[in-house]
C-alpha cells in the first residue's frame, strides 16, 4: 500500500527531528560521522517508523525484524533514531563518546538496547544478515533482516562474498539498502575505487535490484514493499542520497564525513534542517 499523505508528513517530521538530534549528538560527543548519518536518516526513519516490526519496549522480542547497520560509523544516526523510537531516553545520548558511556561512535550491541549487531568495521553487516536470515529459516520464523550498507563499504570483499551467499541461499527475507551518497573518506567513490556499474554488479550476483531516490518516502516505501513481495531472491535497494543531506553547508562535502561542531555551527545546521520541505 502506498503511503498516505498523512503518513508521509509524519515520516518527514520524524526525519527532521532525527536530523536535529544527530546534530545535537555530534555536539555532545565532540565529533561524529555526521555526513553519512544525515544521508541515511530518511531510510532509517522509514524502517523504524513504518516498515520494520520492532518493539522499543521489548528490544529483544524474538520475532522482531533485525536491522543491521553495516555502515556502523553511522552509530550516531542509529543511536538517535533508537532514542526517537523510545528505546531509551534521549538524554542518555549526552554521554556519547564519554568515559564508560555505552555509546561510542560505533555502537556496542551488548550495551545499547535495540542494536542488533556491534558493527563499525566495514563489511561485517551483510554476512551477519545472511546468518540471521538462515537462522530464521531454520527455525521457520518469518522475521526479516534489513541491512544498511555504505557505498564505499561495498569495496570490501566480504560484501560480495555475502552477496553471493544471500542469492545462493535465496534469502528473500534479506533486504540490503545501500546509502549511495557517492562519497567515502578520501573522496568520491568513483574516484577512489569505482563502483559503477553498481546496480548491474548486484544483478550479476543474483539480487533483485531497485534504484530509488533515498530521500523520497514514496519511493522508499514502494521499494520496501516490492522487496517484501519478492520471493526466492534477496533485494537490494540502491538509495541515491546526498551526504550531509539537510545541512546546506555539509551537503556533498567530503570533509563532513566526520566532524565536530560548536553550538554556533550547530545552530546554523539546525536552521538549515528546519528549512527542509
Amino acid at each position: 500500500m502506498p503511503l498516505t499523505e498523512q503518513e508521509k508528513s509524519e515520516l518527514k517530521a520524524r526525519a527532521r527531528q532525527l536530523r536535529q538530534d544527530i546534530v545535537d549528538v555530534t555536539v555532545w560527543s565532540g565529533g561524529a560521522h555526521i555526513g553519512g548519518a544525515l544521508s541515511s536518516a530518511d531510510l532509517m526513519v522509514a524502517l523504524y517508523f513504518k516498515y520494520a516490526r520492532v518493539r522499543p519496549q521489548e528490544p529483544e522480542w524474538p520475532d522482531r525484524d533485525r536491522i543491521i547497520l553495516s555502515k556502523g560509523h553511522s552509530g550516531v544516526g542509529l543511536a538517535a533514531v533508537l532514542a526517537l523510537k523510545g528505546y531509551f531516553p534521549r538524554d542518555l545520548l549526552r554521554q556519547f563518546n564519554h568515559f564508560k558511556s555505552p555509546f561510542g561512535m560505533h555502537l556496542d550491541g551488548n550495551k545499547v538496547k535495540g542494536v542488533d549487531a556491534s558493527t563499525g568495521s566495514l563489511g561485517h553487516g551483510l554476512p551477519i544478515s545472511v546468518g540471521l536470515a538462515l537462522g530464521a529459516r531454520f527455525q521457520k520464523q518469518t522475521w526479516r533482516v534489513y541491512c544498511l550498507l555504505g557505498d564505499g563499504e561495498c569495496n570490501e570483499g566480504a560484501i560480495w562474498e555475502s552477496a553471493m551467499s544471500a542469492a545462493h541461499f535465496k534469502l528473500d527475507r534479506v533486504t540490503a539498502i545501500v546509502d549511495r551518497n557517492r562519497l567515502m573518506i578520501d573522496g568520491a567513490t568513483e574516484q577512489v575505487m569505482a563502483l559503477e556499474p553498481f546496480a548491474e554488479k548486484w544483478r550479476a550476483f543474483g539480487w533483485h535490484v531497485i534504484e530509488i531516490d533515498g530521500h523520497d518516502f514514496d519511493a522508499i516505501g514502494r521499494a520496501i514493499e516490492k522487496a517484501h513481495a519478492t520471493a526466492g531472491q534477496p533485494t537490494v535497494i540502491v538509495a541515491n542520497t546526498i551526504k550531509g543531506r539537510g545541512v546546506d553547508f555539509m551537503e556533498n562535502q567530503v570533509k563532513w564525513h566526520y566532524g565536530s561542531m560548536d553550538s554556533a555551527l550547530a545552530d546554523k545546521a539546525k536552521q538549515s534542517i528546519a528549512r527542509m520541505s
Binding site: S29, G104, H106, L107, D108, S118, G120, S121
Partner: peptide, 8 residues
C-alpha cells in the same frame, strides 16, 4: 581511538 568504540 578510544571514543570510536571497541570495533576501532
Amino acid at each position: 581511538f578510544g571514543h570510536a568504540g571497541t570495533t576501532h
